[in-house]
Simulated assay, not measured.
Amino acid sequence: MLTWPPETSSRAFGLLWDLSLDGLFRQSDGNTNLWCPSLREVSATFHNLGAHSPTLRPLGPTQHTGSEASLSHSEQQDALQEVALDSSLNYICKFLTLCALAQPGAYTDQNLLDLIELLCRAGLDTRLRLLPKTDLQQLLLQLLENIREWPEKLRQLCCALSRASDHHHNLLALVQLFLDVSPRSRQLRGQLSLLVMARLLNQQERLSLWQEKAQLSSLCQLLSLMRPSSLRRYLGPETVLPGQEQQPKASAQLDHKVCYLCHSLLTLAGVVVSCQDLTPDQWGELQLLCMQLDRHINTHIRESPQAMHQTTLKDLAAQTYIRWQELLAHCQPQAQYFSLWEGV
């Protein structure tokens, strides 16, 4: 229905919406009977709207045809298609949110995990770039609330979402799809950010990522690996051959990649800390984080008018340091820290 011409799909969706609401309001015994689309139907709809495939994985480059003479007409058609796509994607999020609210038990926990992953992949799909972010975020919040075995499913969901892309920019954007407005979304943001950082730095198997109250200690270890020089060695082998000096242009490109990766990692680190319910016994770990940030990142970034990406990273590091210092000021340390300083 959503792939029909806009004027037709709009009226059809309006009818479906009205019928669904009418059916809900007419339920006198509280036993709702609302049609909820299956995961396969949602996936097929995204595919029909232009996603790479029903599983949202690339099929290959899109073939374009037409001459320069028909360019203006083609641009007009593209504009109309974008308007139609925006409306269709809005319909999807709106109706799925209605389903999630009216019939929270319509989907099993596994269905909910698969649907959340599908929606997140759709949010990263370049051909669905008009996916309404606010509507999608509200839908994701409700789907998280509908998961019945939440503690057990959190790890499975984080692992699936961390594999949704291989690029740090996309993974950061995926984390930001989940708003920091509910306990579950907050927990997912923090745990997923830590897992993504560990994956990008190849530390998944070396850290205790899933132990309770171990997030800050794991983050301390990851911060020590985020030094630009360390990231440069990590990214460098693809650019520089052994025994050869780096060309100025290649060196500048590598420096830009390093700062770009470090910026994403540092943003994720900020998410991890902001999602913690800090207690006085974590004061020492937070202070160590501030020291690690200053030691491994702040002091290793040189600002330059010719390299704004370095200045941008330096600003983010400074802002992050200030936020963490403010948290320290509001998180009273345990008496052992005062005793330690009194004995010095």
Rank of each mutant, 00 (worst) to 15 (best):
E68K: 05
H73L: 13
T55M: 00
T62D: 15
V83P: 01
H64D: 04
Y91T: 07
A84P: 00
D78T: 01
S70H: 01
S87H: 08
G66S: 01
Q77D: 13
L85N: 04
E68C: 08
S70W: 04
Q76V: 14
D86T: 05
E82H: 12
S70T: 05
P61N: 12
P61H: 14
S70P: 03
P58V: 00
P61W: 08
L85P: 00
Q76S: 15
Q63S: 15
P58S: 02
L59C: 08
Q63E: 14
Q81L: 15
A84I: 00
L80S: 12
V83A: 15
T55G: 04
G60C: 05
D86A: 10
L85C: 03
E68W: 09
P58Q: 01
S72T: 06
E82S: 15
Q77R: 15
T55A: 08
T55K: 03
P58R: 02
Q76Y: 13
G60T: 06
E68G: 09
E68I: 09
L80Q: 15
L59P: 00
H64R: 11
E82K: 08
D78I: 01
L80W: 11
L85I: 06
V83F: 05
Y91S: 07
S70I: 01
P54H: 05
Q63C: 07
Q77E: 14
H73E: 15
D86V: 03
S72Y: 00
